[in-house]
Design a binder for these strands. Structure first.
Lengths: 401, 401
DNA sequence: GCATTTAATTCGTGGCCCGAACTTTATGTG
DNA sequence: CACATAAAGTTCGGGCCACGAATTAAATGC
């Protein structure tokens, strides 16, 4: 007899339709609030009766509340629905030098925010984060806390969530998730920083209909978050996105990763500083912020360094354009404050690098605190489902007729 | 008043669950045939009653037929279900030198196959293909023809399907789909050759559970098909996958695309021939097949050329590994007949190139005729839906709880 | 005061999955 | 050979769900 694999395939039950439509409506309310039930029906294509039932359920669950009534030229006034702001999300952004802990509502608005230097020891870091989180919970006791979202510059094992790679951080092999879950009593979600930026754009940015996008984070190194088919691509072991460590020139300068000529060797903040030092002969270490302010004061060596960095950034992006054909490339990092200097160089490099078809739009990240906002989305994903309607469309159309 | 966008979001209806489960069962039958209703229920997790209803429907639609009864130690004998082989799919693989037209059943088994030289003119090519397709339809009049699947070395506009880029072919700006649909009266689906190879692996290969895979096609140039999260990634304008035209060395030899040092300049069949000519000094043009047979006859220059090509292939694959973190890389092309020579060099380059985590498995494509098989899948996708259960899982879990 | 208009709810219908009961068909066993 | 046992497959009642028509609610204008 043949052997069969009994790990069940995912099938649909009677409630599947409700789950999908609930998710669709919840996301529409989030995006278009305040919005009436009638408009929800029109926008979604669902029947008004169905919309009423589902919104009633959402109000029962206190995700949504009835707002004020609207005003129309004729007819009964609509009741506007909006998200219940008393649902709160705790987030933390771990960076090599500094950790930021914040409290946000379901709309990604921040209510409070604290920062402190990053401890070198993972356990001490976890301790400090959870202490701040509990402070926030205590001082906002009226809120309902939905969970904790963490962004960090590293990778972790997808199942156990143990941190397995964070070169700039030194928190190797630590189970941050479990540690925080025990100390806060809340669900904890973790995500790589570049991926968090993708979520921030998709959830809180204006690029609602974008299905294919790449985020490039520029700081000490270069990271990337890959968003294709309306979904975040994490790769086989959550490791996708390390385009920063692709070698552009086998004979280039050595990289921290051990190889030579990696993209980030040419295009990271560190590269900018190196270019400046080379040109200037000045061996005094300055910060990247200082480099940018010198460029703003017309320091030609600083300007030259930033421009060289921008061109390198564009050169590496060609790889993303050729390989992934995104509709948009979003740049995250301090360097975006120099956008007017950056942008023409990037588009020049990219225009040249594009084989055919439209070159992608290239733009800086929307708003500040992409990583923190992305962490908010990370937590909400559990309840709201996929934020991009297009992704849900692909999902529903499993049977593609 | 605010403006609302009334292009409906995709929502679920009462029939959505049935559509999903129908697709799940149809794919399970395809994969595990012959299989009883009872086993289908166990494997899928659906109730036996539900399975009976859906399979009855599939039998009515004549996608599935009742096979022989099985034999068990005790109890009523199971009735085995299998796909109805009288459903046929027509396929064509367009290559720069030769076009292959074939007839396959739903299991991807080929019943007949003809090849002819590729006409330089697109219209003439379409004419010839449709003539062969109609021959096949006439000589197999008992079969039910489901559609036509085409693979080609180029890109087309995702909506209109007009060919917009096919450098090795010269069929620019031609609407092959419409042309063939009119002459055959069947639905016609087109796909880039590398993407077709992905479909072949996913549908007919043994890598059922792979969610993240990259196919690298090696012939005149280098192409790639990107399979992530259990889905084929086509990019914003269907252009994703041109990793072959990423420059590995800005000072390298010129590429047909106009830039320098592209991956395919180093790793395509053409590169192998160039390496051979350089080493050998022999200016006589030989075919790649000839190069390989000389290597088999211990021609050291030929061996050297193939090894250099293999190393270049591996070097470029590092980009795929770092950026996409696939679980598997599949190589398609004539060069796979030299696998024992290739494989150690590829794994060596990749082992070196992997930052962390497991390096991907790397293997030649399963079976012959990947492109044609992929075209069969292309047509079946419409009826069967997503072939990978994992993709359906992501789909159903739109509300991710 | 009443027609008109729009929002929102109510309610009957049909699709669908679930799960229990039942039928069918096989293999032993006393 | 009747009967227990076992497994496959079917039938049927119940509950969930979306649909759509009818109804109710609430506003405007003549």
């Amino acid at each position: 007899m043949r052997r069969l694999d009994f790990t069940n395939t995912q099938v649909a039950s009677s409630e599947t339709a409700r789950d999908i439509n609930r998710s669709v409506l919840l996301n529409l309310i989030r995006r278009k609030q305040p919005i009436s039930r009638a408009d929800l029906a029109r926008v979604s294509g669902l029947q008004r009766s169905t919309v009423s039932l589902i919104t009633e359920q959402l109000i029962d669950e206190s995700w949504v509340i009835n707002g004020p009534t609207g005003r129309l030229p004729r007819g009964r006034r609509p009741t506007f629905l909006r998200l219940n702001e008393n649902r709160a999300i705790l987030v933390a952004d771990i960076r090599p030098a500094q950790i930021t802990v914040a409290l946000a509502d379901v709309n990604g608005q921040f209510l409070e925010q604290v920062a402190f230097p990053t401890p070198s020891d993972a356990a001490a870091g976890a301790q400090k984060i959870s202490s701040r989180l509990r402070d926030l919970m205590r001082s906002h006791s009226k809120l309902v806390f939905e969970g904790v979202g963490i962004s960090l510059p590293g990778r972790f094992e997808p199942v156990s969530k143990r941190i397995i790679f964070a070169p700039n951080l030194k928190w190797r092999d630590f189970d941050l998730k479990r540690s925080l879950e025990r100390s806060t009593g809340l669900r904890v979600e973790m995500e790589n920083a570049a991926n968090a930026c993708v979520l921030a754009e998709v959830w809180f940015g204006h690029a609602e209909k974008i299905r294919d996008m790449v985020v490039v984070t520029v700081s000490e190194g270069i990271g990337s978050g890959i968003f294709l088919n309306g979904q975040l691509m994490r790769g086989a072991h959550g490791m996708a996105g390390e385009f920063g460590h692709v070698s552009l020139d086998p004979a280039g300068p050595p990289c921290t990763c051990g190889r030579r000529g990696c993209w980030e060797v040419y295009a990271s903040n560190r590269a900018g500083l190196r270019y400046y030092a080379e040109k200037n002969g000045d061996s005094n270490a300055i910060s990247f912020q200082e480099l940018m302010s010198r460029a703003n004061s017309s320091d030609s060596a600083a300007i030259h360094a930033l421009e060289k960095m921008a061109r390198a950034l564009g050169r590496g992006m060609r790889m993303l354009v050729a390989g992934l054909a995104p509709e948009e490339i979003v740049v995250v990092g301090e360097v975006t404050s120099q956008w007017s200097r950056l942008e023409p160089l990037l588009t020049a490099e990219l225009g040249e690098g594009v084989l055919f078809g439209k070159p992608p739009r290239i733009r800086p990240a929307e708003g500040i605190m992409a990583r923190l906002r992305g962490s908010v989305a990370l937590v909400l994903q559990g309840e709201f489902g996929v934020a991009v309607p297009e992704a849900a469309k692909a999902a529903v159309a499993v049977n593609g007729r």
